[in-house]
């Protein structure tokens, strides 16, 4: 765990706000990332994570608020500050007709590396992401996992002190996902500050020193995983896979003693209960009376999903 010291943070965001037409996508988001710290933005799809990241990376102008990187104010028009950030967009952003090496070389030069620096850094990054063998092939022929790795590799070329990763594991097979998480851990251990967005609570729990929980454009809570789960108190999360009229069943469940929150997903119910084990018989009886067939039941200790449910009344995934 990184120690938070009273020095200039790697990143500071103050009151970030951005609207698209009538929709306020990001509404007064403030947070800081210490040097060497890994900070997670955890929230469901549409929460505003990408919008926050785009403003931090200088891709998008903020309607209000400020971003500073290592103490330097950052806007879309301050190229020098941008050079301190490694930015990995959510979707694979590469040129499919060019080879892996050509993609890397282009971005290395764009980030101001000399020809010689670019050559050696490209070779290093290709090793790091395990693509040295395929460096000559057009990226269009890469597998999804390989593209993801190259996508991250581009952000590492200029050895930034702050790396921004926007949901880097979405749509990736479990093996590649694990490799990506491991490499982020390695980078963080190497002293890089990381801003990591995800809607997978497992990733936030595994990687992040601190997590900001974001919903509807607002940061609703922030802290270490331990601090956040403490917010839920002594509560268990009950996850039920079920078929039937789930919204109606949810209404009934809310009246069951011990049930704090109920959220409905596709073929799935999530409950927050004081004591899950004790409440379970009555929950199942209630569902049976509502004509809902239960396929499986899971009982979980408080985790970030429970935190999110507790804070928003919704589940992270729908």
């Amino acid at each position: 765990m990184a120690v938070r010291m009273d020095v200039t943070p790697a990143l500071r965001c103050r009151g970030l706000r951005r609207r698209y037409g009538d929709l306020i996508a990001v509404d007064g988001v403030s947070f800081e990332i210490a040097l060497g710290e890994t900070y997670g933005l955890l929230g469901p799809n549409g929460a505003g994570k990408t919008t926050v990241i785009s403003m931090v990376a200088g891709v998008l102008r903020a309607d209000a608020g400020e971003v500073s990187v290592a103490g330097q104010p950052m806007t879309p028009r301050t190229p020098a500050v941008k050079a301190r950030i490694g930015y990995v967009p959510q979707d694979v952003a590469l040129y499919p007709d060019l080879s892996g090496r050509e993609n890397l070389r282009f971005f290395a030069r764009l980030y101001g590396l000399s020809r010689a620096e670019a050559r050696s850094r490209v070779a290093e990054v290709l090793e790091t992401i395990g693509l040295a063998e395929r460096a000559r092939d057009p990226v269009g022929e890469y597998s999804g996992g390989m593209k993801r790795r190259l996508n991250i590799g581009v952000g590492l070329l200029h050895q930034p002190r702050l790396l921004i990763l926007d949901e880097p594991t979405v749509g990736v097979d479990p093996q590649s996902r694990n490799a990506i998480l491991a490499s982020v851990e390695a980078l963080a251990t190497g002293g890089m500050a990381v801003l990591y967005t995800t809607h997978y609570m497992e990733e936030a729990q595994r990687l992040c020193d601190r997590v900001g929980v974001i919903d509807n454009g607002r940061l609703v809570a922030e802290g270490t995983v331990r601090e956040l789960t403490a917010l839920v108190g002594e509560h268990d999360r009950v996850v039920l896979a079920a078929d039937g009229d789930l919204p109606a069943a949810a209404e009934k469940l809310r009246t069951v003693a011990g049930v704090r929150e109920v959220s409905v997903g596709a073929g799935r119910l999530e409950l927050l209960c004081g004591d899950g084990r004790a409440a379970l018989p009555e929950i199942l009886a209630c569902l049976a009376s509502a004509g809902v067939a239960v396929r499986s039941v899971e009982l979980r200790e408080p985790d970030l999903e429970a935190v999110f449910l507790h804070l928003t009344g919704k589940s992270l995934r729908d």
């Binding site: 891709v59 941008k82 930015y87 979707d91 952003a93 590469l94 040129y95 764009l110 980030y111 101001g112």
Partner: peptide, 15 residues
């Protein structure tokens, strides 16, 4: 469309 524009805009170059 392919997302590389965001990368170009994040790069330390004038827009």
């Amino acid at each position: 469309a392919q997302g590389t524009l965001a990368r170009l805009l994040a790069a330390p170059i004038p827009r």
